[in-house]
């Protein structure tokens, strides 16, 4: 696109790319370096063996996967109602859901805290999964219903003529067609859930249920600030998402740009 730059332009471009790379890499290198201080590579072993790290990992996975599945299903089924079946009042329903689009979870901390305690959900996976799901539903509905509206109308007519009832239509026709937008919803929701810090901080107290984002602070409280272990833990927490990103880079790229614009 800009391939016909002259020499000074090319040198300048190359220089800027190098500066950008250095700025991006230096903090990452410092983090790795700090994680190897003191006891070296065995910092990682100690993090894995002396803390319930694998338990935290499993908990993060349980919370994230449940949230992703719930948001994909609830978002798509609501969009099916609003954009395909369209019973009277659908626009109102859509507005009711979309008002929550930009709402930070902390704006609900007072009632959430009160209700979670009152109905005995404190210190359960649900205390994190439910608020996370609810906060993510508006985005799921927004992108899914925009996607469905962009599909050719003949599709629904064909489904009708085949005599499929709405249940069959949803699972056999809509879900397969919506796979691209479902992966967008899955990527965004998974990242948000996996990286969520506030809700587990508020509602999870027992170590058995704690999630990965709490690990760095775990090291500060358990053993008077053991810096190299914090960095080793931070790297161990990050490796899964970074690996997933690099392996699925193409899906990520198209998914994230589609999710932003749709």
């Amino acid at each position: 696109m800009f391939q016909f730059q002259r020499l000074p332009g090319r040198i300048l471009s190359q220089l800027l790319v190098l500066v950008a790379l250095v700025v991006l890499v230096v903090p990452l290198v410092l983090i790795v370096k700090e994680s190897l201080a003191g006891e070296g590579i065995s910092n990682y072993g100690i993090v894995l063996s002396s803390t319930p790290f694998l338990r935290f990992f499993a908990n993060s996975l349980i919370v994230s996967v449940s949230t992703v599945v719930l948001v994909m299903f609830l978002g798509l089924s609501a969009s099916y109602g609003f954009a395909v079946l369209r019973p009277r009042g659908s626009p109102v329903g859509a507005v009711v859901i979309l008002t929550g689009l930009a709402l930070p979870a902390i704006a609900l901390v007072v009632p959430l805290y009160y209700v979670v305690q009152a109905i005995g959900l404190l210190d359960t996976y649900w205390s994190v999964i439910i608020p996370l799901t609810v906060i993510s539903i508006p985005f799921g509905v927004l992108v899914s219903s925009n996607y469905i509206r962009g599909l050719p109308a003949e599709l629904y007519e064909a489904g009708r003529l085949d005599g499929a009832n709405s249940w069959q239509f949803f699972w056999q026709i809509l879900v397969p067609i919506c796979r691209p937008i479902l992966s967008v919803v899955a990527i965004f929701t998974f990242l948000a859930a996996w990286n969520e810090y506030l809700l587990p901080l508020l509602f999870i107290q027992s170590t058995d249920l704690q999630v990965l984002t709490q690990v760095p602070t775990y090291f500060q409280s358990e053993r008077a600030v053991d810096t190299p272990k914090i960095f080793a833990a931070n790297i161990l927490i990050s490796v899964p998402v970074v690996v997933i990103f690099i392996v699925l880079q193409k899906t990520f790229r198209t998914g994230i740009s589609a999710g932003a614009v749709k």
């Binding site: 609830l74 609501a78 109602g81 609003f82 079946l85 609900l108 007072v110 959430l112 609810v134």
Partner: peptide, 25 residues
């Protein structure tokens, strides 16, 4: 009536947590 059922779970959750939460606030 069944056409309404598809959006109902999402609506109940959003109204029950977000809207009720804002009202409670």
């Amino acid at each position: 009536l069944s056409d309404y059922l598809w959006a109902l779970p999402a609506l109940i959750l959003v109204v029950g947590v977000i809207h009720a939460g804002i009202a409670a606030n």
